[in-house]
């Protein structure tokens, strides 16, 4: 190569030793990560949908809108009952998930995981209900969604009355310590053989 061009290259492009190459790669990666995070906040767009559901396998793109715009104002409850005969059903039983916290919860709070799982699952179910209604006119296909199966699986593991048991579950919400609002039904399943 002409010495002039060679000198020019050296001036324009710093010596590409492995440290510089690595530095550039990491900077580009972090910049893309930051831009992707900004793009995925607030309203869902085609780009944010693509990033979140097609690229982000490990859930690395956060959504920083904590408790906004709609703060979680409800406690979720998961109840189930069994069909004993065609006309006879067991009492509704609640799966104990919304336990009150202890004094040490500010430091040690393992119970928060169960509550968050149920809350995530219920929110995922609730948010998918309109699209199922719109597509099929009913909620039959909702039974094949992952959140529905998670809930059904959880209730089906509770003690059965008989070997061939039919179980129904109910998702309900209440307003916790505010007693003014009555508990409300979110979803009532059909009876499933478990």
């Amino acid at each position: 190569m002409c010495p002039l061009f060679s000198n020019l290259f050296e001036i324009m492009i710093p010596k590409l030793d492995p440290t510089v190459i690595y530095e550039i790669v990491v900077i580009v990666f972090l910049a893309c990560w930051f831009i992707a995070t900004v793009l995925c906040q607030f309203r869902e767009t085609k780009i944010s949908w693509f990033i979140r559901y097609k690229i982000d396998l490990f859930n690395l793109i956060p959504l920083w809108t904590f408790f906004a715009p709609h703060p979680g104002k409800r406690d979720y409850h998961l109840l189930f009952r069994d069909k004993i005969t065609e006309t006879d059903y067991s009492e509704w039983q609640e799966m104990e998930i919304t336990e009150e916290r202890t004094f040490w919860s500010w430091l040690w709070n393992p119970e928060k995981r169960d509550k968050k799982i149920l809350s995530d699952v219920v929110q995922s179910l609730v948010s998918s209900i309109p699209s199922f209604r719109e597509k099929t006119g009913n909620l039959n296909l909702l039974m094949f969604s992952t959140p529905y199966i998670i809930v059904l699986h959880a209730v089906s593991q509770c003690k059965k009355r008989s070997q061939n048991c039919y179980r129904q579950f109910m998702l309900a919400e209440s307003s916790g310590y505010q007693k003014e609002t009555k508990p409300a039904l979110i979803l009532l399943s059909v009876f499933h053989q478990i």
């Binding site: 408790f67 703060p71 104002k73 406690d75 979720y76 336990e99 307003s175 916790g176 310590y177 505010q178």
Partner: peptide, 10 residues
């Protein structure tokens, strides 16, 4: 909002 969130058991 804060009153509503604080009133949940969760």
């Amino acid at each position: 909002a804060i009153k509503d969130v604080f009133s949940t058991k969760t």
